[in-house]
Simulated assay, not measured.
Amino acid sequence: MKARNTVLTVLAASAALAAAPPAQVGFVYVSPVGDAGWTYQHDLGRKEMERALGGQVTTKFIENVPEGADAERVIRQLVTGGAKIVFTTSFGYMNPTEKVSRAFPDRFFFHATGYKTGKNFGIYNARFYEGRYLCGVIAGKMTKSNVAGYVAAFPIPEVMQGINAFTQGMRSVNPKAEVRVIWVNSWFDPGKEREAALTLISQGADMVTHHTDSTAVVQAAEEKHKENKNVYAFSYHSDMAKYGPTAQLTGTTHHWGEFYTRTVKEVLAGTWKGTNVWGGFKEGMIKLAPLNKAVPEDVKKLVLAKEKEIASGKLHPFAGPVVSQDGKERVAKGKHMTDAELGAMDYYVQGVASTLPKK
């Protein structure tokens, strides 16, 4: 009789869950969804989660939301509109998200790339620097000018990690290589991104990449490549090969769907205990885009071998010795940078030829 009652209880609980109205999940995006880039990858993750959870959820997103006060308004709007869970997907949304999370303790909030947390407020990020390191290895092997160009958004630790990891990877196979950086002070400004890429190419860079949201850098490299300048690019966030079929060598791509699905399931089941996720190749949150046929076979083998080493923990992109641009040793030989040190990165490593903007 006890077993029968247990079965009936489970069936009743399942029926109640099935009868419950779908939970609304909101997403706040810093740029347009488009068909490539940072926001596009998050939106792919949203769709994957929605498919996986079927009728348990409905989703809503608001795109092109400026960071700051306007973000707080949008987050509140989603919550008062019925959202039980809200994902905010840009660094500048951290403080507004935290503020709204305190005002609505019965809702759940998750912020990408930040560091603040709360009882109903989790954070998540991907180890972008792992992919950057491998792109740097390819650049170091294939450059003819020994100069790479990097179009960057804002000098925050996440972006600094990418610049420095790319440089570390490049110089691990080519000690003569240098990286030049131009800051555009925007996550999404195709005009500025394109201008910066062309400037870097005019300064001798035959390898370019970006930590910005549009396809402009890859497109600029494609145009120059067709002019027989042999300029190559590494995309970021997503595979942008259709915008640079000959110029794009590969790219660091981000994958959020499994995280979104798992997190929403935990909230709905009442089992969520807090989220502080930072996943890389090992967790499938970072992958390389398909390698261009222009990448030599020996370089492909080298990069794939290093990818496995990073995933297994054998190789760390910031294994010592790590020396900053000013000659200071940041990580000693035999050690590697801790997550806390990565999260506080505010300097260039040796090999970056540009000057860091003053705070």
Score class of each variant (00 low, 15 high):
Lys2Ile: 11
Leu11Thr: 03
Ala12Gly: 09
Ala13Val: 14
Ala13Trp: 06
Ala15Gln: 12
Ala16Glu: 12
Ala19Pro: 05
Ala23Leu: 04
Gly26Lys: 10
Asp35Met: 09
Ala36Phe: 13
Asp43Met: 09
Met49Asp: 01
Arg51Gln: 14
Ala52Trp: 00
Gly54Arg: 11
Thr58His: 05
Phe61Tyr: 15
Ile62Ala: 09
Glu63Ser: 14
Val65Lys: 09
Val65Cys: 07
Asp70Leu: 12
Val74His: 10
Val74Gly: 08
Arg76Gly: 07
Ile85Ser: 01
Thr89Arg: 02
Glu98Met: 13
Pro105Val: 07
Asp106Tyr: 08
Arg107Leu: 03
Phe109Ile: 06
Phe110Pro: 02
Asn120Leu: 05
Phe128Pro: 01
Tyr129Met: 12
Glu130Gln: 15
Tyr133Leu: 12
Leu134Pro: 13
Asn146Gln: 09
Val147Trp: 01
Ala148Trp: 04
Gly149Leu: 10
Ala152Trp: 01
Ile156Leu: 11
Pro157Val: 02
Pro157Gly: 07
Val159Ser: 01
Val159Trp: 02
Ile163Leu: 09
Gly169Tyr: 06
Ser172Phe: 03
Ala177Lys: 01
Glu178Ala: 11
Arg180Ile: 10
Val184Thr: 15
Ser186Gln: 11
Trp187Glu: 02
Phe188Trp: 15
Pro190Asp: 08
Leu198Ser: 05
Leu198Gly: 07
Leu200Ile: 13
Ser202Arg: 11
Gln203Cys: 07
Val208Ser: 09
His211Ala: 09
Ala216Pro: 03
Val218Gly: 11
Gln219His: 12
Glu222His: 10
Asn228Cys: 08
Lys229Glu: 14
Asn230Pro: 03
Ser235Leu: 02
His237Cys: 09
Asp239Thr: 10
Ala241Tyr: 02
Lys242His: 14
Lys242Leu: 05
Tyr243Asn: 14
Gln248Pro: 05
Leu249Met: 11
Thr253Leu: 02
His254Trp: 13
Phe259Asn: 01
Thr261Val: 00
Thr261Phe: 00
Thr263Tyr: 09
Glu266Gln: 15
Leu268Glu: 06
Leu268Ser: 03
Gly270Leu: 02
Gly270Cys: 02
Trp272Lys: 01
Lys273Thr: 06
Val277Thr: 08
Ile286Ala: 02
Ala289Phe: 06
Asp298Asn: 15
Asp298Trp: 11
Ala305Ser: 15
Lys308Leu: 07
Ile310Glu: 11
Ala311Pro: 13
Ser312Gly: 10
Ala319Gly: 10
Val322Gly: 00
Val323Ile: 15
Ser324Arg: 07
Arg330Gly: 00
Val331Ala: 04
Gly334Met: 10
Thr338Tyr: 13
Ala344Lys: 15
Met345Lys: 02
Val349Gly: 01
Gly351Glu: 01
Thr355His: 08
